[in-house]
């Protein structure tokens, strides 16, 4: 290192090229930092900032597909305030996110704990568990659509034609509440692998010596889970929870493929309603306004996950103030 510096100094002495503004500029550290960041900033601007900005702008215009819009201020939002379908989509989305996330985490954690034991064919079973997550959502949505079909449901077939427990086929999607619960079940099914595998990774970072120590102290199974597993799992749980909430909140494919928001708009999520109004309905401004309305909810959910679950002190096992 010293040698090169020496060589450099000597060269400087000899040549003493005049410091042009270019060399000065490149020696200026903040500029160099800026220059190195430029490619990634470019990507962010083009693929994130611009679409987001365009969405915000569209939400304040009356643009339709085919006609350039005019600035209308907050008119789209005012009309949404007065739109029962929009409010139903908001409550549906919140309900869907809360219930499905709770389900995914309960079942996912349980599955992760099971998989963390030494069982035969461990690697094989773990791979199978990932399947619902790997299969493209549209395909699994179509499978669920068949399962919920009023005429061709395998579930109905088993209960009616094989077991004779019931006379009529189930109408899973025909009325609002059964339809909502059916969609939630499908969403939980798809989300479990993500939670299970992420938490399994977290479980494997917990040192077995902690459990051995607990065993020597005479801790019960529940105490080991509550005092060791849960606190040490918190950091990864916070990340998984945040991602899962975001995925669920902005879910589109399952609902669009299974119900398209029907019957009579009672299963619309904000994402599906925004799409229906904006693209097939051609009201780009209105659709953008619905999409923009999701942003505050998403930010709130992210903050809640990070600050609610991911508090550092709790993670490190210290008492809360």
């Amino acid at each position: 290192m010293d040698a090169t510096v020496d060589v450099g100094l000597q060269r400087l002495n000899f040549v003493r090229a005049p410091d042009t503004w270019v060399t000065k500029l490149f020696d200026y550290k903040p500029f160099l930092v800026f220059l190195c960041l430029l490619p990634s900033m470019g990507l962010l601007v083009v693929f994130l900032t611009y679409p987001l900005g365009l969405g915000l702008w569209l939400s304040m215009t009356d643009t339709t597909i085919g006609q350039p819009g005019h600035f209308v201020g907050l008119e789209n939002f005012q009309e949404l305030m007065d739109d029962p379908v929009f409010w139903m989509s908001v409550t549906n989305t919140i309900f869907y996110t809360v219930v499905a996330t709770a389900g995914k985490f309960t079942l996912g954690l349980w599955l992760a704990l099971l998989l963390n034991h030494h069982i035969p064919f461990k690697a094989f079973i773990r791979a199978i568990v990932l399947l619902p997550w790997i299969v493209p959502t549209v395909l699994s949505a179509i499978a669920w659509w068949w399962i919920y079909s009023p005429q061709f449901s395998i579930v109905s077939y088993v209960f009616v034609d094989l077991l004779h427990w019931s006379d009529t086929y189930f109408n899973f999607l025909g009325s609002p509440w059964p339809a909502r619960w059916s969609l939630i079940v499908a969403n939980i099914w798809r989300g479990i692998p993500f939670v299970a595998i992420t938490l399994l990774a977290g479980l494997q970072t917990i040192s077995p010596s902690l459990y051995e120590a607990a065993l020597l102290d005479g801790a019960s199974g529940w105490q080991k889970f509550y005092r060791i597993t849960v606190p040490l799992l918190m950091p990864i749980l916070a990340v998984a929870l945040t991602l899962s909430v975001l995925f669920t909140f902005s879910d589109f494919q399952l609902v669009y493929a299974i119900t398209r928001g029907g019957p009579f708009n009672t299963t619309h999520l904000m994402a599906t309603l925004a799409f229906q109004r904006a693209i097939p309905g051609a009201q780009l401004g209105e659709g953008a306004a619905i999409a923009v309305s999701m942003i505050p909810f998403l930010i709130a959910a992210t903050l809640l996950c990070f600050f609610g679950v991911g508090r550092r002190k709790w993670q490190q096992g210290e008492a809360n103030d």
Partner: peptide, 21 residues
């Protein structure tokens, strides 16, 4: 009507008809 028509998309009636339902 047969139950479930509120859940049908554009192929719902085709499937039910072709199945003789």
């Amino acid at each position: 009507m047969i139950p479930g028509t509120l859940t049908w998309n554009d192929v719902g009636n085709n499937q039910a008809f072709a199945a003789g339902k």
